[in-house]
Simulated scan of single mutants.
Amino acid sequence: MRKIEIIEQIKNHHYHEWLGKEINEETTRDQILFGDIDEECTGIITAIYASVDVIKHAIEKNVNLIIVHESLFWNHGDHTDWLLGNKTYQIKKKMMEDNHITVWRNHDYLHAGIDYKGRRVDGIFYGLLELLGWENYVHGNIGFPLILNIPKIKTEDLINEMMYKLNLNGIKCFGNINGYTEKIYLPMHITGNDNDKITVVDQENIDTIISMECIDYTLGIYVKDAAMLNIEKCIIAIGHFNLEEPGMKWYAEKFLPAILPVTVPIYFKQVGDMYQFVIK
């Protein structure tokens, strides 16, 4: 099958409405970010983003279609006009050109939802829930998981379990990691205007927040203050890419093989820890 045929077949198995609006093919994030879509597809790698290591892995596996969830060239919209003299850009671009690699971003369609086991699920966050064994602990709509009620666990044990299951070497945390966790909140992005999230944490009696981005000066210091008052609250700041990465693993291992011909090899490549930790 040609790459474009693969992409269209995948899109046909997703919902086309997200956040109350029809996905617009002209304005969606889900564009061909690089390469020729009319060539025959030799195989697929999914990844949270097409890092240099992911591209090298594709070359090793003789795969020429990389499906990513995030951008390729370090900016929203993947504009490259400002990168023409950039050395890293030139080398990365040449690697893909020389090996006929195409990169397709699947962001909006994955979040819009997939029919899986009789339910409409967000492909990214369902992958995380399944990895952690939390599919049945969602409070509300599993299509967009925000609050979960899990069996009571020591927060430090939860952190170590997540580090092991997400295959990470470290996790940044705020607040009290020595308490217990039963009620979890996934607020998605914590980027600066977070009064609503602080209100949810307080009113819903949240024990632990599992976050993507987490800046210091809103929810971060709120949780630290709460912990200083012996109120058991903690943020497990996994990071944007590492929290969504299990969804791309699930996509490669569970979803795509069910809808694509068996002749198309499919792999997942973990990007892994976004941070290195230097400890005093």
Rank of each mutant, 00 (worst) to 15 (best):
residue 2 R to A: 12
residue 2 R to Q: 15
residue 2 R to I: 13
residue 4 I to K: 15
residue 5 E to A: 00
residue 5 E to I: 02
residue 7 I to C: 04
residue 8 E to F: 02
residue 9 Q to A: 12
residue 13 H to E: 08
residue 15 Y to S: 06
residue 17 E to H: 09
residue 17 E to K: 15
residue 19 L to E: 06
residue 23 I to D: 05
residue 24 N to L: 07
residue 26 E to M: 09
residue 27 T to H: 03
residue 27 T to K: 13
residue 28 T to Q: 02
residue 29 R to D: 11
residue 29 R to P: 09
residue 34 F to Q: 13
residue 38 D to K: 12
residue 41 C to L: 15
residue 41 C to T: 14
residue 45 I to F: 13
residue 48 I to W: 13
residue 50 A to P: 14
residue 51 S to M: 14
residue 59 I to L: 09
residue 65 L to V: 13
residue 69 H to G: 03
residue 70 E to T: 08
residue 71 S to F: 00
residue 75 N to Q: 11
residue 77 G to Y: 03
residue 81 D to G: 01
residue 82 W to V: 09
residue 83 L to V: 03
residue 83 L to A: 05
residue 85 G to W: 10
residue 87 K to N: 07
residue 89 Y to W: 06
residue 91 I to N: 03
residue 91 I to G: 09
residue 105 R to A: 05
residue 106 N to E: 08
residue 106 N to F: 00
residue 108 D to H: 03
residue 111 H to A: 05
residue 113 G to I: 08
residue 113 G to F: 10
residue 113 G to P: 06
residue 115 D to N: 15
residue 115 D to S: 14
residue 116 Y to L: 02
residue 117 K to T: 00
residue 118 G to W: 02
residue 119 R to F: 10
residue 124 I to N: 05
residue 124 I to K: 06
residue 125 F to M: 15
residue 125 F to I: 11
residue 132 L to D: 14
residue 132 L to N: 09
residue 134 W to L: 03
residue 135 E to A: 10
residue 135 E to N: 12
residue 135 E to K: 15
residue 136 N to M: 11
residue 136 N to F: 06
residue 138 V to Y: 04
residue 142 I to Q: 06
residue 148 L to P: 14
residue 148 L to Q: 14
residue 151 P to V: 01
residue 153 I to R: 09
residue 157 D to I: 13
residue 160 N to C: 10
residue 161 E to D: 13
residue 161 E to C: 05
residue 162 M to A: 01
residue 163 M to T: 14
residue 167 N to D: 13
residue 171 I to A: 00
residue 174 F to A: 00
residue 176 N to F: 07
residue 178 N to L: 06
residue 180 Y to E: 07
residue 181 T to M: 00
residue 184 I to W: 01
residue 186 L to H: 00
residue 188 M to F: 04
residue 190 I to E: 01
residue 190 I to A: 03
residue 195 N to K: 05
residue 200 V to K: 13
residue 201 V to M: 14
residue 201 V to H: 08
residue 203 Q to L: 13
residue 203 Q to K: 13
residue 206 I to P: 05
residue 215 I to P: 13
residue 217 Y to C: 14
residue 218 T to C: 15
residue 221 I to N: 09
residue 221 I to C: 10
residue 222 Y to I: 06
residue 222 Y to H: 07
residue 223 V to N: 04
residue 223 V to S: 04
residue 223 V to F: 01
residue 223 V to D: 06
residue 224 K to P: 07
residue 228 M to R: 03
residue 230 N to I: 02
residue 231 I to W: 12
residue 232 E to Y: 08
residue 236 I to N: 05
residue 246 P to N: 02
residue 248 M to P: 12
residue 250 W to I: 07
residue 251 Y to Q: 05
residue 252 A to Q: 06
residue 253 E to H: 05
residue 254 K to C: 06
residue 255 F to E: 01
residue 258 A to W: 08
residue 259 I to T: 03
residue 260 L to F: 09
residue 261 P to W: 07
residue 262 V to D: 12
residue 270 Q to A: 15
residue 279 I to G: 11
residue 280 K to P: 15
